[in-house]
């Protein structure tokens, strides 16, 4: 009992319980699953398209023809340009702006969930959606690539994947590349998520978050196409997104993968800092 005669303040709810509650909420949301199912369908549709059509030229998709294990890499690379960031943006929009719109952010703060813990809990929620999205696309790509397209013809003892450099990779080597690109994609999405959460912390309209991310991607695309702005290009997170295809080269050129990861870390840090500052001060 303290001087006010109150029972001693209870210990804060454990992290496990907090994150469990957040994840249950994220995964109960119908749109989360709708988006994830749509994403999972993309590699399968790609596999069908590749089986049914001639080998395309001048497209990363050409790598997948008769070379099924490249499908997860190509699918992640193509989805990273728009759909994956949008899925993360939707999760981030619901996480703060959506909760604010429904008045439930207030409830969390009054519980009380501390503001710093709230940021952590929301970040984990968005990260889990991103990881699920990347994981499902990767697994669906692997499954569809292996079952519907298969490895390169006349599979040798250790030839599961034909690289763009004309070498073959063993199954474990191919898997390593696939895991590498999945992890790299997740880092890029985490950066997008941090920025989207920062926007989400500034508004109570989820659509503002969505349009900011979509608008940002379009703006970056436009900026990239203007040669006069070349000094700016290394700073745009989208510039490094072509590096996904680098895992299909042999040896893997680490340069752009590392550079894009560092740029993503920068976005992550700035987005995270803005998010934290705003969440500590914002009204709910």
């Amino acid at each position: 009992m303290n001087r006010t005669g109150a029972p001693t303040a209870p210990r804060p709810v454990s992290w496990g319980r907090l994150l469990g509650a957040e994840l249950r909420w994220v995964l109960r949301r119908p749109r989360t699953w709708l988006m994830l199912v749509l994403l999972t369908a993309v590699p399968v549709l790609m596999a069908i398209g590749i089986v049914l059509s001639d080998r395309p030229r001048r497209s990363l998709l050409a790598e997948v023809t008769g070379n099924g294990l490249t499908l997860p890499v190509v699918a992640l690379s193509i989805l990273l340009t728009l759909l994956l960031p949008l899925v993360v943006a939707v999760a981030a929009a619901d996480a703060i702006a959506g909760e604010s719109q429904h008045g439930t952010l207030r409830g969390l703060l009054l519980a009380p969930v501390g503001r710093v813990r709230l940021v952590a809990m929301k970040s984990v929620g968005v990260l889990v959606v991103a990881a699920l999205a990347v994981g499902l696309v990767t697994v669906a790509g692997l499954a569809a690539g292996w079952l519907m397209i298969g490895p390169p013809a006349v599979l040798g003892a250790d030839g599961a994947l034909l690289t763009m450099s004309g070498t073959t990779l063993s199954p474990s080597g191919a898997l390593y590349r696939i895991v590498l690109v999945a992890a790299w994609t997740l880092v890029q999405l985490a950066a997008v998520g941090a920025v989207a959460l920062a926007v989400s912390a500034w508004t109570e309209h989820p659509l503002v978050v969505l349009s900011s991310v979509l608008g940002g991607l379009i703006l970056f695309g436009v900026l990239t196409s203007i040669p006069a702005l070349e000094p700016l290009h290394p700073w745009l997170i989208t510039t490094g997104w072509g590096a996904a295809a680098d895992v299909l080269r042999d040896p893997v050129p680490a340069g752009e993968l590392v550079r894009s990861t560092l740029v993503a870390a920068g976005y992550l840090a700035v987005g995270g800092a803005v998010l934290m500052v705003r969440m500590v001060r914002r009204d709910a």
Partner: peptide, 9 residues
Amino acid sequence: AAALALALT
């Protein structure tokens, strides 16, 4: 944190 991130980048 933001300044550090910026400086690193």
